[in-house]
Amino acid sequence: MSKLFNALREAIAREDAVAQATLVRGEPLGAKLLIYEDGRILGTLGHPELDEAVAADARALLPQGKIETRSYQLASGEEVDVYIESFLPPRRLVVIGAVHIAIPLVAMARELGYRTTVIDAREFFATRERFPHADELIVAWPDEALAQVPLGPQTDIVVLAHDEKFEDPALQVALRSRAGYIGAIGSRKTSEARAERLRQAGFSDEDIARIHGPIGIDIGARTPAEIAVSILAEIIAVRSGRDPRGAGSGLLPAKATAGND
């Protein structure tokens, strides 16, 4: 087995961002080059000038996690194709509120390749028995717990707490972060009241517009599992640059959905 494949597995296991380039048309067919985020490279595509050009392109593709095949012209004039694949650390889903909906949400997010963190101040909610699929369970006040979690663009935050005293501090931390997606459960009325409280706390309309609430897209979701699908569908849409807002979530009033616990 190739040394390079081992190096790739190690980088993925360490959660380092890494790109792998493969020569898919031309010779030596199948030759590989690994390009690390810090600029290091490993292996070769068999042509020094090609390694250099591909490494530069791969570094540009890596931050966006892009995958594509590009054509290059060698010094000899021959044209070759190189397949470049980026491997970013897994996305992280942070769920505030270890409520009933959070259980299928975490299980399904895992299927989507997410690392999941569940946060709740109530220790009888955030238990391993209820959340066997969660990568991390934190029993603490949401704002304190969020301080322990990296909240970069690879992180999505879902607030299911549905209680001002949990929800507001969590959303304030979320809005100050670079999180990729922020959603909060609650009816349209609840969402409006929440927006007003955040406005009074000094957040701009632009800040508040980052919050998706009512959370989820309108698929007529009723059960916790269906609502989890609706939330994850919205996250996927936002991640893909398709903001589905305006369609309305179509969720039941929060009492009938979030209150199942």
Partner: peptide
């Protein structure tokens, strides 16, 4: 890749010979 890596790891541990097919265009 990440989605099938657990299977690949498992097969490697079992001494399988493995080929990988990728959609490149």
């Amino acid at each position: 890749m990440r989605d099938i890596l657990p299977e690949i790891e498992q097969w490697m541990a079992e001494g399988e010979e493995i080929a990988l097919a990728t959609v490149v265009r």
